[in-house]
Design a protein around this nucleic acid. Structure first.
Lengths: 409, 409
DNA sequence: GCCACATTCTTAAGCAGCCGAATAAAGTAA
DNA sequence: TTACTTTATTCGGCTGCTTAAGAATGTGGC
């Protein structure tokens, strides 16, 4: 119900009966409760259609808040959003470098504390903290993080530690999924509840929402598009495959290509960047050069975009979505190349064209999407009752097999 | 609940409380109703664990039946299955050729009638008919079929016509999805509720089940893997892309390659086949040759398998499934090549390896999977209450936007 | 063989969410 | 002002589930 109001932005009780399929009676009582809890406000009346006019409802944006933190090699980004998913504060701090997890978390807790007190919001209104980091997460309950980041972070119980340090409930997810949730919650999907978000920051990934619920897969690694092979005879990747998207078209590959071309490297000012400049920063510099007319830079990005468009096509074909959102800092920096490239390829494709047009767009907050998404994860999980499917979550010991083993009659 | 019993095969009431998450009381009353309806039977007792022994339950296989029909260029296959999803009758008849839809349906209705009377099952116990055809379906409610088949079939209301002719409720779906449902219902997924089925018959496709529910996507085309690009610089496909799986590795491509090699064509006896032999038949002949030691045939299939393995890897990576079932007549014919090829590639891949092993297996009824799946679709839809998500199905006229346009205060 | 105990299954009472029907509220049109 | 339309609320009831208590059916100790 709350989700329906959020999705619509502004809607009447009658509208809710249409959208949710519930009766007027039910809508009325539920809305009454939401009004009492101050989560929803009446903002006016619609024009009469011949009778009593409808009373329009909206989320009360300042009723609740959530914090999102994006922990990435290139930096730690924080965001506080209101109930509508709109950011009310952001902050960026240096990445973890090679500090120990415990130290980093302590620092983060301090920074989050600062951010919260800075905006002067009552602490009781803050629902929780969504911690977002580059995937893949190993266990479904999200306690761990593996290779792509750093060894000492493996098996470190990020969520429980942060819960102790901040006193907030903590949720974990990867950057792509969080970005997708953020896009959905803040209304960037224009009513579409099933869509994919293609993410490019330091790496490449995809987040998938089906009927408004994040699809995470058997081990929380759904949407792993970076190691999809785009060319069976391509270069070998550390993952064991050949021609992975990450290797052919990822930000690191783009930076490498630019560094290999002295003129491009020069024009983009890659060597004028500070010593340990992150991949994301270097990529952004190349994108700037491209926008400024440096042909070599543009060509390198276009090559990457050509591959990524194929990856996008694969996602769209396999999942059959009507909407694909491009998000993440790297897409934000080079949207002038990637958005048209992906659009063009999908328009060429018969399947995407005939069954339904595919809408490709850039996220309206692509550069801080993961952090905003982290906050949206919290809103989503606290305010939208999740349909549980016990069949998959409940353990299956005392299983039928053991019972079968000893039929007595 | 019924689904849980089906999934377990044999299970006690206590087992059901574990699996479904419901209370003993609820399980008890629901099971009582199922027993009264004769859908479930008590088949004995388990060994005591120190108290009263559990009573074991199973589906009553002969309580209900369903019919599946696979309408393919290469032939029309029928199957009748019992409640457990096991086939009790099969039949194959010539394909539609270039006959008009109305004639074909009339013939099918007759053949189905024959099949039903042949097995002597009470007509009231037959739940319905699942009609399966090569995708893609155009409208989500599944009234139409487009190009891959024939022009005159476009926009022909298959389901309503067949309902009139047979007097049975009719469901439509594509071959890959139906096969996946069939695999699930007949217990071939060993408890896994989320998995993908890679299908190869006349074409290539994939069926996806998430939490036991078929995922069909925005336009019913989910799992369209045949036109996924596996090589950005590959040959152009009619769909507008380059290097599509279908073109590089599909049965038609395999047949073409075999015909291009005189020795292979000879050894496989391709020209000894009847005049208009279907792609599937020719493919089967090549597979036979490969099994009989014809090196050229084997090489052609191995090349195809190499590509298909990459497609499989993409599916597994993107959806993060623990189980991949290979199904369809062509996989059945050449399983000796494809199954190991897919397994090998997935074992090489880092992601598939670390997060969780991926189980790759051949369907135990790969050659008639679509027809059996059609029947399973009916069982599934009639016996398992589907969780509806009104948000996506309800139309959205009287939308929020129109309300917003006229705020009166 | 009988009794205490464990475990499974059933029955009864109660609660939550939703629905249908009746009613109140708030507008429009004549 | 009155008749009518549409929106919103209230109330009784149904369904599906839960908790609690008790009946049924086994095991092991004596």
């Amino acid at each position: 119900m709350l989700d329906a109001i959020r999705a619509a932005g502004t809607i009447s009780r009658v509208g809710l009966t249409r959208v949710t399929g519930l009766t007027g009676a039910t809508v009325s009582t539920v809305v009454r409760r939401l009004l009492d809890e101050d989560l929803v406000v009446e903002i006016g009346r619609a024009e009469s259609t011949g009778g009593k006019p409808r009373v329009l409802l909206e989320l009360n944006p300042s009723a609740r808040y959530a914090v999102g933190a994006h922990l990435d090699h290139s930096g730690i980004t924080y965001a506080v959003t209101n109930l509508a998913g709109a950011p009310v504060a952001r902050m960026t701090r240096p990445g973890p470098g090679d500090a120990e997890p415990a130290q980093v978390l302590e620092r983060m807790a301090g920074e989050i504390d600062l951010l919260i007190t800075g905006i002067g919001v009552d602490r009781s209104k803050i629902l929780g903290l969504g911690l977002v980091s580059p995937g893949p997460l190993t266990s479904t309950n999200g306690m761990n993080r593996t290779p792509p980041f750093m060894r000492s972070w493996e098996d470190f119980p990020l969520d429980t530690e942060l819960e102790i340090l901040t006193g907030l409930p903590v949720l974990l997810d990867n950057d792509a999924t969080a970005s997708a949730i953020g896009e959905y919650w803040s209304g960037g999907t224009s009513g579409e509840t099933t869509f994919a978000a293609l993410y490019m920051g330091t790496g490449i990934g995809a987040g998938v929402l089906l009927d408004g619920v994040a699809y995470r897969g058997a081990s929380g690694n759904a949407g792993e598009i970076g190691h999809t092979s785009l060319n069976i005879d391509g270069p070998v990747c550390w993952c064991g495959m050949r021609g992975c998207a990450e290797v052919l078209a990822g930000p690191a590959a783009v930076v490498e290509a630019a560094r290999a071309d002295a003129r491009v490297a020069q024009a983009a000012g890659l060597d004028r960047l500070p010593e340990g400049a992150s991949i994301a920063m270097q990529f952004a510099a190349i994108a700037r050069a491209s926008r400024n007319g440096v042909v070599g830079a543009r060509q390198i990005l276009e090559r990457s975009a050509r591959y990524l468009a194929v990856a996008a096509h694969t996602i769209v074909n396999l999942l059959d979505v009507r909407l694909l959102v491009l998000t993440g800092a790297s897409f934000a920096a080079a949207s002038h190349i990637y958005v048209p490239a992906v659009r063009e390829l999908l328009e060429q494709s018969f399947f995407a064209r005939t069954s339904h047009p595919v809408d490709v767009r850039l996220s309206h907050a692509a550069d801080t999407a993961p952090a905003i998404g982290g906050a949206a994860m919290v809103l989503q999980s606290e305010l939208v009752p999740q349909r549980v499917t016990p069949l998959t979550t409940v353990d299956r010991d005392g299983s039928p097999r053991s019972e079968l083993s000893s039929l007595s009659r």
